[in-house]
């Protein structure tokens, strides 16, 4: 009872003295399983610092129980908002209800949960299907009606990025009979996977003569494929076009060298839109839409790839 009173009074104090104290924000991150996630953490810290928030960071090391414990601890500390990058979709109802009872807004980053959507303020994420479509549209515009046989390097079989990025690309090229996916295999989102599979594709398609473009579901596979194309004695980026998704720093080097042609950004800056929504909510109670889609920007050789590399290389990718 006293506990709740205490929480309520801290909330009132926080609300009434909003301007005077730094807002406290809890961030429960999945872990650091990939460079992209490390960059997301770095950018969230940078955004929080820029806006003068006090960010409490918790690394869950890929375990949901750690995330649930972190959220409980954030609620107990009476933070002003919670950012959550959920490791799995299910099992969040109880802990989200606790946060809702304490009237702490929760914003999901990057991944979704299957709980009722009034348990969180909003979710910030990218539309994976749209990313695939942007890549497909780039190819449609680039080949401009000429025949093009595409080799596709899929992500891990059955994973949602692999399924959605494939769907989006296929939707974009659906009305263009000149573009056809002739080879499609999984490279497991890894460089060596991309290289091995691309070697096989090149052999199967007459040493690469039958392939006009490679579409890779992530940049790492594209970088592997570029090596395979080089070793087969062809010029990646010229003989075979290379388009991929994610926009990690290394692919910008490849684009700057003319070995890759385009990449679609999956921005690790999910915190920026999340904080914007929070500020509007705090200012006049504006309730944001339940899903805020981040932009899927296309970068090509014309977009200063060297400069993009320099801004990204220290983000922890």
């Amino acid at each position: 009872m006293t506990y709740k009173t205490f929480l309520a009074s801290t909330a009132i104090v926080a609300l009434t003295t909003g301007g005077a104290f730094a807002q406290v924000i809890g961030f429960s991150q999945i872990g650091s399983e990939s460079g992209w996630r490390a960059a997301e953490t770095t950018l969230t810290r940078m955004e929080a610092e820029e806006r003068g928030y006090d960010l409490r960071f918790s690394d869950a090391q890929q375990r949901q129980e750690n995330q649930i414990a972190a959220i409980r601890s954030f609620v107990a500390q009476g933070v002003d908002a919670i950012l959550l990058a959920p490791v799995v979709e299910t099992g969040w109802d109880a802990v989200l209800e606790e946060a809702a009872e304490a009237e702490i807004p929760v914003i999901l980053l990057d991944r979704m949960v299957d709980s009722s959507d009034d348990l969180y303020l909003t979710a910030v994420g990218s539309d994976l299907v749209h990313e695939g479509a942007v890549a497909g549209q780039w190819l449609v515009d680039t080949v401009a009606g000429e025949d093009c046989r595409v080799a596709e390097l899929q992500g891990t079989t059955g994973s949602s990025p692999a399924i959605d990025r494939k769907t989006g690309f296929e939707q974009a090229i659906a009305d263009h009979d000149n573009i056809e996916i002739v080879r499609s295999q999984t490279g497991d989102f890894t460089r060596s996977g991309g290289k091995t599979v691309m070697e096989g594709f090149l052999q199967a398609e007459g040493g690469g003569a039958g392939i006009c473009a490679v579409y890779a579901h992530n940049d790492d596979m594209a970088l592997g494929a570029i090596q395979a194309i080089n070793e087969a004695g062809l010029k990646p980026g010229e003989d075979i076009l290379v388009v991929s998704i994610d926009a990690v720093p290394d692919v910008f080097l490849a684009i700057a060298n003319g070995e890759a042609n385009a990449t679609v950004e999956l921005t690790p800056n999910m915190a920026g839109p999340a904080f914007d929504a929070l500020e509007a909510y705090w200012a006049d109670g504006t309730v944001p839409p339940k899903f805020i889609q981040t932009e899927s920007t296309l970068y090509t050789q014309a977009d200063d790839p060297q400069g993009e590399y320099d801004t990204r290389k220290d983000l922890g990718y």
Binding site: E33, T190, R191, S192, G224
Partner: peptide
């Protein structure tokens, strides 16, 4: 061999 092949050390996947 694995590292030299992709000219990079991928601790997660190698």
């Amino acid at each position: 061999v694995v590292t030299a092949d992709i000219r990079g050390a991928d601790a997660n996947n190698a």
